[in-house]
Write a protein that binds this DNA or RNA. Sequence first.
DNA 1: GACATTAGTTACGACTGGTGACTAATTCGG
DNA 2: CCGAATTAGTCACCAGTCGTAACTAATGTC
Lengths: 224, 224
Amino acid sequence: MPDRRARKPPYSIDVVLLTAVRGQLAVLLCRSPEGREKWVLPWEGPRAGEGLDGTASRISKSVFGEDVAWKEQVGAFGDAKRHPSDSEISVAYACLVPTGTPSPVGGVYAWFPLPDLPQLAPRQRIILDSAVSMIRTRMDQSPVAFRLLPQMFTLTELQQMYELLLAKRLHKASFRRALQGAWLVEPTDEWRSEGRGRPAQLYRYAPRKRRPAQRGIRLDLLSS
Amino acid sequence: MPDRRARKPPYSIDVVLLTAVRGQLAVLLCRSPEGREKWVLPWEGPRAGEGLDGTASRISKSVFGEDVAWKEQVGAFGDAKRHPSDSEISVAYACLVPTGTPSPVGGVYAWFPLPDLPQLAPRQRIILDSAVSMIRTRMDQSPVAFRLLPQMFTLTELQQMYELLLAKRLHKASFRRALQGAWLVEPTDEWRSEGRGRPAQLYRYAPRKRRPAQRGIRLDLLSS
DNA sequence: GACATTAGTTACGACTGGTGACTAATTCGG
DNA sequence: CCGAATTAGTCACCAGTCGTAACTAATGTC
């Protein structure tokens, strides 16, 4: 990705591609051209006539062959921290990749579980942390968990994804009741038998138009 | 603000200054040097060695004499929409100004209630809408309502601010019970008599360290 | 067929949040 | 000086939600 350092771009677009691997969030990194064991977030400079979202899409495509199903801008990052592009500012995007998506070939890319990250340029490290934090806080306003799963999934898989993102255990009955009330999924007529135990019904993400159902004021206001 | 168009900056920092005026949100606009009745969001190009937040602070200071109490980045905006700076991208900040802050002098700036906006450059219009929408959605994760009020306020004023931001009526008892549970305010020993009726106790914003108190899963997931 | 294992449901009790009616403290007009 | 009006603040009830444990259901394994 960052292979023409000839001219420093006016800004860079950095992409944080996230997926779930064995019960952990993982980010896709790209081997840096300088130094074999240096890794960077995929990034590019802008091309003329291409919007910010467009550049992010182009990067995803160049990695996976097609655009990701969900991406959202994290923000702009400057503040004099070092970045492989050497540009003043970077605009970051967070993207979600369903589990089971074939990994990009060529040995240039690799998934890193979040606890086992290699060293990154300071600004990219901040971008990565911000992207993960955004995903975690935005998950009840965006279908984040669904974009990390294949099109069809069992409710147990969905619950495990929520547990991963919320970093806390959920109770089966409560989770399903809340899901029922939210009209987010619909059952298919397929079932999956996962070795031993009763087979699980497969569901798909199918949000219905909202009931008005506005619940009470929540002044939760975590910390701050 | 945008008074040297000599050289187009690599990017612009745009600031959305918001306050509440007579029960409505209002934004501060700046008279454009070109055309008397053209208005723009305050913006500047970056200076060397100054972070993104730093530029936003500098703009706020140049308007109000001192930095605002709360600001947060909205994001980066590009996508070929017109902008007074003529630059490729703009990084937007939302800032909150307490009611009762003296307005900047000189006739260059004016508060516009959101329903009565003049025409803006397309990109600035998008920035403004995004900033307002961010404020409204982020209000239960940030002390937004408090930053729109003076340091000391009555609970009725606070409730009215929440009603303004949520655009819905709240019940007095429910609001106060939720506020109690959130440990966000503490009473002072001052009271304010507002003409007729019983005087109201003044409170100040004083968030306590959170009780764990994590309530149930909310899969509210509005629309999409 | 007994048992382990995983999926999915039901029922109950504790707690929360919406609500109307209440008390409290002040101003205003007689 | 007294009562009505007005605004602040609280209480208590109840409908609904949520956490939980115990249950039923369907499969594989021995």
